[in-house]
Simulated scan of single mutants.
Amino acid sequence: MRFRADIQNIHTFTKFTASLATLGHVAWLRLDDQDVRFTVVPEKGTQVWAVLSTDTIFETYTIQSAAANNTINLEVPLVPLQRALKSAQNAIAAHIRLTKKDNIPLLSLTIKTTTINSSAPSAFADRDGNIESTGDDFGGTDREGSVDFFGRQDRETIISQDVPIRVLAAASVEGLHEPRCREPDVHITLPNLLQLKSISDRFTKLAMSTKAGTRGGFSSASGPRLELSANMHGCLRLALNTDAMRINSLWTGLNNPELDPDQNVDGLGGIENHPSTRMKALGDSQGQSEEGWATVRLDGKDWVRVLSVGRLGGRVIACLCHEHAMILYVYLNGDEPGVGESVLTYYISSYSQ
């Protein structure tokens, strides 16, 4: 069993693991010939099923195992992995490999950095103000000429970071699969996630500061409920409704992506009978009508953690199954030439009213 790769995009890899670490402590990492998959399934909260093209983060990718497609399954602690990657932010080269020390399997990160050593020879000025050096001359024998006092020398430093992991048997993970959801009622491209995160965080903190009402009540373990609603006319609404307050933010002019008949088992007929097609016949583009909206109720704290994926950029499509669940698709690197598209999928269950 072998795995080794050079990391070509350390910043993306670090931001990605940081966003996962906010949602769970460990990830199931599946490596094979085609892609890299990270799955986080916490006991409570949002599930993440991320499929990364190998060239999104790696180059010179080498993998070998006895399983089909050279598949390797690992259980990886996310915080130690994130810390190891953070130490490589200024690296000139970094590579990762699967290894073993004292019979403990490890992901070993080797980081090459460059440090600059500066030396300054001691110097003094004579009575006429001419500078003389007590060290070697830098500009020939003319001590009254221009003198460079500082010598610079680059030195390479190699740093190793080891992350203890577990190697998982194929049988132990074959039962894991993405949650199954019905066809969404509304699908919409979200606005900038960092902006949405800022407003969501403000609503959450406001609700926590008041702790009002049973309808908007919450425990310290969960957090206040936020309502996210959207229609098929480019409108998105984030609301906080409690017995003490009702506030919301509304976005209009967003994009509702067209469905692809080639991706539907029933082709064009399936599109015509799709729930979102029926929802499109309702509502309006200004958000004035209450018809045609799909709503999910989210744990405010969990939702803010999910939105940390905004640091990666990329377009995000939300699919809302009314009062049931929301699925977020985060697409990375789709517009970069020569780089395969990677998709992070978030499954978020809706709370009942």
Score class of each variant (00 low, 15 high):
L298K: 00
L298I: 12
L298M: 10
D299P: 06
D299R: 10
D299G: 14
D299S: 14
G300E: 08
G300T: 11
K301T: 13
K301M: 10
K301V: 14
K301C: 08
D302V: 03
W303T: 03
W303N: 04
V304I: 15
R305E: 12
R305N: 14
R305Q: 13
V306F: 06
V306Q: 04
V306K: 02
V306H: 03
V306I: 12
V306W: 01
V306L: 10
L307R: 04
L307I: 08
L307T: 03
S308L: 12
S308W: 08
V309A: 07
V309W: 00
G310Y: 13
G310V: 11
R311H: 11
R311G: 05
L312S: 07
L312H: 10
G314A: 11
R315W: 10
R315K: 13
A318H: 02
A318R: 03
A318M: 07
A318E: 02
C319A: 15
H322I: 05
H322L: 07
E323W: 02
E323H: 13
E323T: 05
H324A: 07
A325K: 01
M326Y: 02
M326E: 01
I327H: 01
I327W: 01
I327P: 00
I327D: 02
I327K: 02
L328W: 06
L328Q: 00
L328E: 00
Y329C: 03
V330D: 00
V330T: 04
Y331P: 00
L332V: 03
N333V: 07
N333A: 14
N333M: 14
N333W: 05
G334Q: 12
D335S: 15
D335P: 06
D335F: 13
E336A: 13
E336W: 08
E336Y: 09
E336D: 11
G338T: 09
V339A: 06
G340I: 05
G340K: 05
V343I: 15
V343R: 15
V343N: 07
L344E: 00
L344N: 02
L344F: 07
T345R: 12
Y346E: 00
Y347E: 04
Y347W: 15
S349D: 09
S350W: 03
